[in-house]
Simulated scan of single mutants.
Amino acid sequence: MTGSAFSREELADAFAEFERTVDRAATTRDWDPWVEQYTDDVLYIEHAAGTMRGREEVRPWIWNTMETFPGNHMTAFPSLWKVFDPDTGRVICELDNPMRDPGDGTIISATNISIVTYAGDGKWRRQEDVYNPLRFVKATLKWCAKAHELGTLPDEAAEWMARVGK
Rank of each mutant, 00 (worst) to 15 (best):
R59Y: 01
N97R: 05
T75C: 04
Y118G: 13
T51G: 08
N112A: 15
R100T: 13
G50E: 04
G105M: 13
G105R: 11
I115P: 11
M66L: 12
A49N: 12
R125I: 03
M74N: 06
P102V: 02
A119V: 06
D121Y: 05
T75M: 00
T65L: 15
N64C: 07
E56L: 08
F77P: 00
G105W: 01
V91T: 08
S114T: 15
W124A: 05
G54Q: 01
W81P: 00
I107D: 10
D101V: 03
E94V: 09
L95N: 07
V91R: 01
P70M: 05
A76H: 05
G122T: 12
P60Y: 02
P60K: 06
W81R: 15
N64G: 15
V91N: 05
R59V: 13
E67Q: 15
G105C: 10
T75D: 00
W124V: 03
R126D: 03
L80K: 12
I62W: 09
Y118F: 13
E94Y: 02
P70R: 04
V91A: 12
I62M: 11
V116N: 06
S114Q: 12
S114I: 05
Y118Q: 11
D85V: 13
H73P: 00
P78C: 06
A76Q: 02
V58L: 12
R125A: 08
G50D: 05
T111E: 01
H73D: 00
T65N: 10
G105Y: 01
D87Q: 12
P86M: 01
T117F: 04
R90E: 09
V58P: 05
T111H: 05
N72K: 14
N112E: 10
N112Y: 01
D104P: 07
E57N: 13
N72D: 07
T111I: 07
S114Y: 03
E56F: 15
V116L: 03
G54P: 03
M66T: 09
W124Y: 13
T88Y: 03
W124M: 06
R55N: 07
P102K: 08
P98A: 14
M66K: 13
S114M: 14
D87F: 06
P102A: 03
I108K: 07
T51I: 07
R126A: 13
W61C: 10
W63S: 14
G50Y: 00
D87R: 15
I62P: 00
